[in-house]
C-alpha cells in the first residue's frame, strides 16, 4: 500500500489512485509519423529499474492527474508535480543500508 502525495489532497493510500505509466509522453502529431514511430507512441513506455517519472490520477479523491518520481526497486516516493509544470530532478540514489521508507 504505497502512500502517495497527491499535490491537491496530500498523502493518500494507493488504493485511491490509478496508475498511468511513464509521464511526459506527449501525444504526437500523428500524420507525420511512420508506422514504426506511431507504434512506439502507442506501445513503448519507460520501464526502468530505479527512479521512474510516472503518472497517477487521484480518481477516488480530487480526480486530478499528476506526475510522481517513484523508485521501482525500493518503492521510495519522490516529489510529485503537476502536468505542464517543470519536472523536478530525480532523487538521488539509495544508500547502501536499504530503502528509506
Amino acid at each position: 500500500m504505497l502512500y502517495i502525495p497527491c499535490p491537491h489532497c496530500g498523502l493518500r493510500n494507493e488504493t485511491e489512485f490509478h496508475y498511468g505509466a511513464e509521464a511526459g509522453v506527449a501525444y504526437p502529431e500523428p500524420n507525420t509519423l511512420t508506422d514504426s514511430e506511431w507504434a512506439k507512441y502507442l506501445h513503448i513506455r519507460a520501464n526502468p529499474k530505479g527512479w521512474l517519472a510516472e503518472r497517477w490520477v487521484h480518481y477516488a479523491g480530487c480526480g486530478r492527474w499528476f506526475n510522481l518520481w517513484r523508485n521501482t526497486i525500493t518503492h521510495e516516493i519522490g516529489p510529485a508535480w503537476l502536468p505542464f509544470t517543470t519536472k523536478p530532478k530525480a532523487p538521488g540514489n539509495i544508500g547502501q543500508e536499504g530503502p528509506r521508507v
Binding site: 500500500m1 494507493e14 496508475y19 520501464n47 529499474k49 521512474l52 510516472e54 526497486i73
Partner: peptide
Amino acid sequence: DAFNSYSQRGGFH
C-alpha cells in the same frame, strides 16, 4: 499490482 516494480513484493490490500 497496479504499478511498475522490480521489488518482488506487492501491496497487502
